[in-house]
């Protein structure tokens, strides 16, 4: 039995952010990012889907224990980002523009060290119901 299975865990966090490039003028930021550049921030209910792919362990039948996966996501992602301002309250986005693309790559990097290297990890992040990103692509 060497067949691979994908297992998914859904979590969510609510956060404020704004899209802003510190090297640009206010006018250029407004022109490029529009209402997402609002100086007083806006926010989203982010939905996070973490996918882990691997061969189920012969003894447990698990690719990964979902309770353990949930704890890792809570500790590494949700506690850092939930009910926070991504620009102001997190070290990850002090210099990095918190677009959905950048957030999904940051989440991947936060989780990857905690998932065994023989498992594939794919992160999907919904910023709204209609806008979502995936990494790796």
């Amino acid at each position: 039995m060497h067949k691979k299975v994908a297992i998914y865990r859904k979590e969510h966090f609510n956060a404020a952010h704004r899209l802003h490039n510190m090297d640009w003028s206010d006018e250029k930021n407004m022109a490029v990012f529009g209402k997402c550049n609002n100086p007083n921030y806006h926010g989203h209910n982010y939905e996070l889907i973490v996918k882990v792919v691997g061969v189920p362990d012969a003894a447990t039948g698990y690719v990964i224990d979902t309770k353990i996966l949930s704890n890792i996501i809570q500790q590494e992602v949700i506690e850092k980002f939930d009910h926070k301002n991504l620009n102001l309250d997190t070290v990850e986005f002090k210099q990095l523009n918190p677009t959905a693309e950048n957030i999904v790559m940051v989440i991947y990097d936060l989780l990857r060290p905690h998932i065994a290297m023989d498992k594939e990890l794919v992160i999907t992040l919904y910023e709204t119901e209609r806008n979502f990103v995936q990494y790796p692509a």
Binding site: A16, H17, H42, G43, N45, D82, H83, L88, D89
Partner: peptide
């Protein structure tokens, strides 16, 4: 609780 975060949070 965490809804009082000084630097705001947000929703859809």
């Amino acid at each position: 609780g965490k809804c009082a975060n000084a630097n705001w949070h947000g929703h859809n």
